[in-house]
């Protein structure tokens, strides 16, 4: 059996479910995108084992694993993950509902655009971490401030992509709905919303990336639970292994959410016949 390297690479990019037959018989295919990451890990191990940089500055991957074990055993890491995930979920859900709602409102109705678009375009221009002092004043230093900050970060890309997605739907398809006197709600849901969905999902991916950034930012303010709290503590006690651990956790959570959205895209956008890379 010959292995077509191109086919393996294409089949392994999880963007769209690979066409049947392409990846058949190759069990390793799903892991090929991880090879470069593995190489970086090996390099990291080699450099830290070489002793050129001390463990204070660069702990080895094993130190980081040990830190993970230690923090899991004493219960701090699981508790922190639960706290952080809860914040991200709440903030993302809130931002998603508001951004989607505003985007559809502005997309469907010119009046909606007039009301909603300018303020949100201005909000877009503001780096959301510049809002931290304002939010502390408005919402205090508790959970509400953190969730709101994440929500604002999530809201903007969802809004922009929903609005643009609705407005980019081919007006010829809308005409079909008009000719056949299809009810407005069907035009809104089956033509405009489904037509905007690819764009909305792109917005969702941007949003989730920002959600994690917003989480880190918000957790640097008066936190006593969460991954950001462990990070702050580790910094104070110069536990570089724990600092690395937190960074790795953020990276893994980011990859996980991206993977979930890709899966969602594969499911919801199965109708697309687009260029898949070669």
């Amino acid at each position: 059996m010959t292995i077509d390297v191109d086919a393996v690479l294409v089949a392994s990019s999880e963007r769209v479910p690979a066409p049947a037959g392409r990846a058949s018989g190759n069990l390793l295919a799903p892991f090929t995108p991880w090879l470069s990451t593995l190489a970086i890990l090996l390099l990291w191990t080699a450099v830290s084992a070489g002793g050129l940089i001390g463990p204070r500055a660069l702990p080895s991957p094993f130190d980081v694993l040990a830190a993970a074990w230690e923090l899991t055993a004493n219960g701090r890491l699981p508790a922190a993950l639960v706290a952080s995930l809860a914040r991200v979920l709440a903030g993302t859900a809130l931002g998603l509902v508001l951004g989607l709602g505003a985007g559809l409102l502005a997309g469907y109705y010119r009046v909606g655009e007039m009301v909603v678009d300018r303020p949100l375009q201005m909000l877009r221009a503001v780096p959301f971490n510049a809002l931290v002092p304002l939010f502390i004043v408005a919402f205090g230093i508790g959970e509400l401030m953190k969730v709101s900050l994440i929500a604002v970060g999530v809201l903007v890309p969802i809004y922009l992509n929903t609005f643009a997605g609705v407005r980019n739907v081919d007006s010829k398809l809308v005409e079909v709905g008009l000719v056949y006197r299809v009810p407005q709600r069907l035009i809104a849901s089956k033509i405009l919303f489904l037509g905007a969905l690819p764009s909305i999902l792109t917005g969702l991916r941007f949003s989730l990336a920002i959600a994690w950034i917003a989480l880190v930012t918000s957790e640097t303010v008066n936190t006593n639970a969460g991954v950001g709290y462990i990070l702050a503590q580790a910094q104070r006690f110069v536990r570089t292994d724990q600092v690395f651990l937190c960074i790795v956790i953020y990276a893994l959570l980011g990859i996980l959410t991206d993977y979930l959205v890709r899966r969602l895209e594969g499911r919801l956008l199965a109708w697309r016949k687009s260029y898949d890379g070669r």
Partner: peptide
């Protein structure tokens, strides 16, 4: 002239 089918249905 174009069939104008909704590609997602």
């Amino acid at each position: 002239q174009e069939a104008r089918l909704l590609p997602w249905l």
